[in-house]
Write a protein that binds this DNA or RNA. Sequence first.
DNA 1: TACTCTGTTGAATA
DNA 2: TTATTCAACAGAGT
Length: 265
Amino acid sequence: MPELAEVEFYRTQWNDGLGKKVLRVALHGDKRIFRGTDVEGLERVLAGSVLKSSEARGKQMLFRFTKDAWLGLHLGMTGKLTTAPADHAPAKHEHLVLFQKERALVFEDMRQFGRVHFHQGKEAPAWWAEIGVAPNDPEFTLELMRAFLARRPKLTVKAVLLVQEGFPGIGNWMADEILWRAGIQPARLVRDLSEEASARLWKETRYVAREALKKIGKKFGDPPKGWLFHERWSRKGVCPKHDTPLERATIGGRTTAWCARCQPS
DNA sequence: TACTCTGTTGAATA
DNA sequence: TTATTCAACAGAGT
């Protein structure tokens, strides 16, 4: 579930803990979300450190602590960040809990497609610096997007929108929303896009990213009325513009919904 | 009961 | 190097 805007929303859920010390760390260190992570170091260093700040880039989040400690989080498909009372007992899927005096900062992830990174150093970890420019960033220019498309000519447009190096933060529902608004058939190959079509793709990518951030990033909830979002889940979904039934297929390995009338080619 | 579906992604294979 | 497929996981729905 968590795409660009939802990630931003979840990031802010730990804001109450900013400037406060972590007294104790509870975690399920054998879970998949910790794969490749120095769990022992994470536990030892974060206990006694103070949460200083946080930032989101695409679907990634980075929390900065004192002691030069950095906690990177990815929510996968079912990850959530919440807070709980200080005496909270971690539930089955609450794999990482940072206890502070007044509250517990909770990371839960039922299906464990998410990920926890721990890093200690003056600078942010290398993987963080390498994240691409997200569509809500002013640096996400038409030229930048076209340069990325040029390297993926044989992907379908639907598939290319899901490649995080080029479109950080875009996930399945946002991709469908963008293509519907841009009037592009999702199974179209990238190399067959006209100049005009790629310009529309760029414009709508930015629009959907910014609007979603505005509406969902602040206060969790559904996108505005009239978005394809509200129709694409249901078997009986119809195009918000013409009420024509939506087409459905697996494209780029993912369930895809589109309107044959709005997106003929 | 058993089988299918799911908003992610990254490893293995071609 | 780039594209495709499948598995990791847990639960809900049919």
